[in-house]
Design a protein around this nucleic acid. Sequence first.
RNA 1: GGGCCUGUAGCUUAGUCGGCAGAGCGACGGACUCUUAAUCCGUAGGCCAAGGGUUCAAAUCCCUUCAGGCCCGCCA
Length: 505
Amino acid sequence: MNHICFDTTKIDKIQELLERGVMVYPYTFERKDTVEEIKDRFSGIGHEKSEEEVSIAGRIYIVRQHGKTIFADLGDSSGRVQLYLRKNDLGEEQFDLFRQYVDAGDIIGVVGHVFRTKMGEITVWVDRFELLTKSVCPLPEKFHGLKNVETRYRQRYLDLIMNEESRETFRTRSRIISLLRQFLFERDYLEFETPTLQPIYGGANARPFTTYHNALDQKLYLRIAPELYLKRLVVGGFDKVFEIAKNFRNEDIDTNHNPEFSMVEIYEAYRDYNDMMDLTEELFSLLVEKVHGKTTCSFAGHDLDFARPWRRLSMEEAVQEYAGIDIRTHSVEELRTFGLEHCVEGCESATTRGEYLALFFEHFGEKELIQPTFIYDFPIENSPLAKKHREKDGLTERFELFIAGMEMANGFSELNDPLDQKARLELQDAKRRRGDLEAQMIDYDFINALGYGMPPTGGVGIGIDRLVMLLTGKDSIKEVLLFPQMKTIVPGPNGSETGESGGDE
RNA sequence: GGGCCUGUAGCUUAGUCGGCAGAGCGACGGACUCUUAAUCCGUAGGCCAAGGGUUCAAAUCCCUUCAGGCCCGCCA
């Protein structure tokens, strides 16, 4: 929206109301009930008005005028209820005030009694009403409502006013995050907040956003992950920590990606990746159970079953199963030939068995993993923060959780050997200098922290937005983000005015 | 970054064999004391996303741009 949507006839009405001495934007209203409460409390009511008086407040959605009576639908955050107003009861002045000046979109408070109409609908018979907020923007059409996807994302408030389904999605989102916190608090994890503005970004492979602090005269990055700071807390002696963090990654936007996204990262000392898989499984099962009331849910046409235990498959086993090749019994040259035969992306530049393992898994395995499945033991090449496998050479103790073909969680036995970590980050840094835009920077303070000693630690990160998608059945991340990133509409001829170029580099 | 699709009144949309831009709801005026997408009568409201081209004539055909959706690539 790049223009004001004020309706002049509504603004004229405000002027007339003020001239009549009516407060258009008063300060309070003594609301005693909600729509939901009234519908519950009076579910058995008949055609006779209740003895009890009720007062509710909310937005008017539809007005149906009938000469000397008016029906209207009022909605608050708990639901909608019908209002019934009669000229006889309100008196000429109040009745005309409503008839002439109260429109769909306005917010009013009413006091009255409850009854059931001939058509059987629980209704509030209004004794008096008060205009609480005059709306000056026209509401979308009453029957079709607001369908336009772009408008729903750009003017989310309007989407929430008009679409109960959307409101329900975000209610569920709030509840999921609340349940997540509750789950972790019950297990004695401490919640912390670590820097969003970081001088050195790390903890993931991604391109960062860059910003600048004037007083420090210094370049800063928006974090791509909270990982390195949370591990510093484990070094410092907090054994069980988590953070619900907004991360920022400077990459494309699509149905699964928004430049800023929420993630929970959890770390626990004296635990390894097996324990973190258990924790993840427990958390997801609980959430599905709480949100759906059962251990199954459907998503993108799949019936997903979260009953424990979930399938766990090493990456080598997964490649064996889905690609039909045993990585361990083939030479790198044979793997290369196999990869090229099957048009596996990235094979041209792969040089190690570990790289082929990862490539084959991504090509053959990932999208096949519909039911909740843990894939574990990742090659060391693309896992610079995970501890070397205790038995298997060339692999790390890392796992990812896949559901409906989506990567939902990523965890490992955290690398706590400072010499190994230093070497691996130096390797990342070298890659970055050679032009790999997503390779990690080297954070010497983090390496020093490990140098003081981090206990054996298990960690896991879970993408909250995707989790919400899964639990609300939405197949676009924009449907579960209140304000998804959208390109700013630039006004002006041809829409191509180069007003300001965003971002610095 | 590549492909496909979409953009018409405040909202939901018809019109895309080129020939005056239509409807429903909403708004405005009027009738109506149990309606619920109320009903009935009347009025106003459009740079057909923006720009350019072809044509006697463009919402419609062509090109460019903008915005969005879906799919693919990369990532979570």
